[in-house]
Design a binder for these strands. Structure first.
Length: 864
RNA sequence: GCCGCCGUAGCUCAGUGGUAGAGCGCAUCCUUGGUAAGGCUGAGGUCCGGAGUUCAAUCCUCCGCGGCGGCACCA
């Protein structure tokens, strides 16, 4: 009898898997395929238990599907471009290549020790020319399709990372990586026309029935489709000084509205401070320029916007109401109007829009209600400090009077179109994806600038455009731009001296197609059509919720573009999505504020309180709330350290068991110890297979039958829990099953039932604790590897008990119980209840008014 | 402000229109040849609060409270 030795056992089985090469995925048209993928990691060099949880989830799915007869693809790679490598280069003088590949080597080993069933033959890093060169190849196709364009625009500039950020990468006015307040700068910038796909990206969400509603909702909000009307209010009298260089209509002000039904309630127009008309006015009127400057002072954070007071400036310009030429409206510049949305101009209808109302009250503009709430008297209804935005009937509105809101919208749009004053329009909140970054460690944009030919694509034969090996990271800014020779090339069109584009692509471009490359990472073309057709879409994708509108939207967009290019056959990359929670750990802090690692702290439990002290000085340490593991708070736990003490399987089991997968899990030593004990208990049962059996006792037959039932129940429950992504429930069922097996005496009578149960247990536990599963399988002397064994089946009938214990309620309170055969009819059960001595006593002197029998569950007597 | 999720034992969480559960922790005891452990037993609950529907509500509905997340002067 030997104690379970996780270190030895785990190493042994990992070697066995590797030498049998069983995780290599090969196309097999005769088997159903299953592609399971976790979001690939950034090679930071440190693997923490958060990674372990993420990849363990995917591994459970991969191993389960394999056992269910699927041809499983489960690859791994590296999202290897990005700033940390540049920072390391600047701080330590190492090359970003060397730093990145060194980290990859460390993390690969750490991942391999987790016992993941990954096809490592497909591994690649996005910073390899063989990957990013193919990315450049399809980027050229987008360029040819007109989906890439360059425009001078206001961009989000991160002053710390010294680069441009996409809108999706600005969180609460701050850079998503640096956390620095984002500045607005005018720059020449490369964009991908994601807005061309706005409608289909929105509609496609409906087909993603295996995505969390939450993520679909977030993408829907982000795309922000709205239906409305774009119309032009003509200038009254002569137009203000026209200008050719501005896009704004020269004969009026173009506005966008979703409430054309309230047009008769318009009392002013408001334009954004950076609207071309405002800028034109500012050029000749200093007062306007001063006002615009005032507007720009305010911060961009949510709190500042919330509290910002509405500011306006009356330009003196007047426009004509499209439905009533006698009605002239003033044009104001207002700080609450955004240039980025719609046309950068609105008509103000104060009665039915709170912002417009606040503005109108401040500047004494008229407030005319045009929507009458139900059951209100038109003579008495007034809008005071709260705009009315509910349903109602249109009034005070000429030809729209009497219509409901929807009918009035349609009628107003039709009339405006008749008048040639505007058109019905759909507007999206989504804006084009700015993809250029002024960084050196990224995929070079394969474009050449020629003074005579303009923007020229690098010829296909000249791809990949490789990064130089000798970039200088000792200064801030873009090392590609200041490299002495790299950017100087001959123009592919005319041969004259020209320069390369020195911006690189956003790393989110790298991660927007890697899942397709995994289907054949050595293909000459970016995507091998045969492999992609077989493997795609990804059947189960797993990753963090933080990418709900970043990576997941970009990947959907790129997939559609590549499909339109004929490179892919699917239009949605991820058929199933699961967003997992984080692993958190409490924090420890000395009195002087210094953070301590878990290993530097000793924790004593006194009753219900826990006290911590520093191991070195013995001083008391403050225990902080569990938060996401981070280097700065030093609460990171490395899977390797856990594996050393408890084994990898214990760590996997714990991170999957203690919390529902979509929620955060709090890492505790006690939790891993619990998992480790379970592993020992399981192993003890298998290890005892050859031990002499106990003497046969009374009740052994019943014990054997009961164990069989438990087995079928456990197989059913674990199977359903894995399919439903409820890994914590699956592990809970395993705990129960193990307890049942242990409770069943080991005799010659129960031997067969016990062996069956253990055989099922080995296979049920294998997806979670694969090394243990193999050890158990070997102890059973079962053929081959448990990893390749079929998933156990179950008999639904056997999973049921033959006899049920039914609680009996009297007026809703539990008063007794009866035994009845499973499936007994209502009448039979009622008879049993009426014969039960307990119940008869309870019912003395009472009349039974009603009997409710819920089959196999409960009986309720209503008495009085 | 709008939208979503969550609230069950000390902690982390299952669960169900009908008997309130697991792991960890805690307590008692046993074992010390399963031993850098193992086991028995036990205590511990206003299922966030209130109202409604129902024979019966932790579960369904409504109104609150608290926590978390997303979006946000988006016209």
């Amino acid at each position: 009898m030997a104690r379970y030795n996780p270190k030895e056992t785990e190493a042994k089985w990992r070697t066995a898997w590797e030498s049998a090469d069983i995780f290599r995925a090969v196309i097999d048209p005769n088997k159903p395929k299953y592609y399971v993928l976790e979001m690939f990691p950034y090679p930071s060099g440190q693997l923490h238990v958060g990674h372990a949880r993420n990849y363990a989830m995917g591994d459970v799915v991969a191993r389960f599907k394999r056992a269910r007869g699927f041809n499983v693809l489960h690859p791994m790679g590296w999202d290897a471009f990005g700033l940390p490598a540049e920072n390391a280069a600047t701080e330590r003088g190492v090359s970003p290549q060397a730093w990145t590949f060194d980290n990859i080597a460390k993390m690969r080993e750490a991942l391999k020790r987790l016992g993941l069933s990954i096809d490592w033959s497909r591994e690649f890093a996005t910073c390899e020319p063989s990957y990013y060169g193919r990315q450049q190849a399809w980027f050229q196709k987008l360029l040819a399709r007109g989906l890439v364009y360059r425009k001078e625009g206001v961009v989000n500039w991160d002053p710390v990372d010294m680069t441009v950020l996409a809108n999706e990468q600005v969180i609460d006015g701050r850079g998503w990586r640096s956390g620095a307040p984002v500045e607005r700068r005018k720059l020449n910038q490369w964009f991908l026309k994601i807005t061309d796909y706005a409608d289909q990206l929105l509609e496609g969400l409906a087909s993603l029935d295996r995505w969390p509603d939450k993520v679909r909702l977030m993408q829907e909000n982000w795309i922000g489709k709205s239906q409305g009307l774009r119309l032009t209010f003509a200038f009254a009298g002569s137009a203000p000084e026209p200008s050719e260089e501005t896009e704004c209509a020269v004969d009026g002000v173009s506005v966008y509205t979703t409430r054309p039904d309230t047009l008769y309630g318009a009392s002013f127009l408001a334009i954004a401070p950076d609207h071309p008309l405002a800028e034109r006015l500012a050029a000749r009127e200093p007062a306007v320029a001063d006002f615009i400057a005032l507007c720009r002072q305010g911060g961009a954070s949510a709190a500042e916007i919330e509290s910002a007071e509405k500011l306006g400036y009356d330009t003196g310009i007047r426009v004509v109401h499209p439905f009533d030429s006698n009605n002239q409206l003033p044009v104001w510049i207002a700080n609450f109007v955004l240039m980025e949305y719609g046309t950068g101009a609105i008509f103000g209808c104060p009665a039915h829009d709170q912002r417009d109302l606040d503005f109108a009250r401040k500047y004494n503009l008229p407030v005319t209600p045009v929507v009458l709430p139900p059951d209100e008297d038109p003579a008495l209804f007034h809008v005071k400090q709260t705009a009315y935005v509910g349903p109602g009937t249109i009034y005070n509105s000429g030809f729209l009077d009497g219509l409901d809101i929807d009918a009035a919208k349609t009628a107003a749009v039709a009339r405006i179109e008749e008048l040639n004053a505007g058109v019905g329009a759909t507007v999206y909140r989504l804006r084009d994806w700015g993809v250029a970054r002024q960084r050196g460690w990224g995929c070079p944009i394969p474009i050449i600038h020629c003074t005579s030919c303009g923007v020229v694509a690098v010829a296909a034969a000249d791809l990949p455009v490789r990064l130089p090996d000798d970039m200088d990271f000792s200064q801030t800014g873009n090392p590609l731009a200041r490299h002495p020779t790299w950017k100087h090339v001959a123009c592919p069109a005319c041969g004259a001296p020209a320069t390369r584009e020195t911006d690189t692509l956003d790393t989110f471009v790298d991660s927007s197609w890697y899942f397709a490359r995994f289907t054949n990472p050595s293909a000459e073309a970016p995507i091998d059509p045969v492999a992609a057709d077989y493997w795609l879409p990804v059947d189960q994708y797993i990753g963090g919720i933080e990418h709900a509108v970043l990576h997941l939207l970009y990947a959907r967009f790129v997939t559609r573009v590549l499909a339109d290019e004929g490179m892919l056959d699917v239009r949605e990359p991820f058929a199933g999505l699961f967003t997992q929670g984080m692993v958190t750990h409490e924090t420890y802090r000395r009195q002087n504020g210094e953070w301590l690692e878990p290993g530097q702290v000793d924790i004593a439990v006194e009753g219900e309180t826990r006290r911590a002290r520093a191991l070195d000085t013995g001083e008391p340490v403050t225990i902080g709330e569990p938060v996401k593991m981070s280097k700065s708070k030093r609460n990171v736990v490395a899977p390797d350290d856990i594996a050393e003490v408890y084994g990898v399987d214990a760590a996997r089991l714990f991170v999957l068991s203690d919390s529902p997968p979509e929620r955060d899990v709090q890492w505790t030593n006690a939790g891993v110890e619990g998992a480790s004990r379970l592993i020992n208990r399981i192993w003890t049962e298998f290890d005892a297979l050859n031990a002499p059996q106990a003497r046969v006792g009374p009740g052994d037959e019943e014990a054997a039958t009961s164990l069989r039932r438990s087995m079928h129940r456990a197989v059913k429950a674990v199977t359903e829990a894995i399919e439903g992504f409820r890994f914590n429930s699956a592990v809970a069922r395993l705990y129960e099953f193990v307890a049942t097996i242990r409770a069943c005496p080991s005799t010659s009578v129960t031997a067969t039932a016990r062996t069956e149960a253990l055989s099922a247990l080995a296979r049920l536990v294998a997806p979670f604790a694969p090394h243990l599963g193999e050890a158990c399988w070997a102890a059973l002397e079962a053929p081959g590897l448990v990893t390749l064994a079929d998933w156990p089946g179950y008999d639904a009938a056997l999973a049921q008990d033959g006899e049920r214990l039914l609680p009996v309620q009297i007026n809703g309170k539990r008063r007794g119980e009866v035994r009845a055969p499973a499936g007994a009819s209502d009448a039979d059960v009622e008879k049993l209840v009426r014969e039960s001595p307990d119940i008869i006593q309870r019912l003395q002197g009472l009349t039974v008014r009603k009997v409710i029998v819920v089959q196999d569950r409960i009986v309720n007597l209503v008495v009085g």
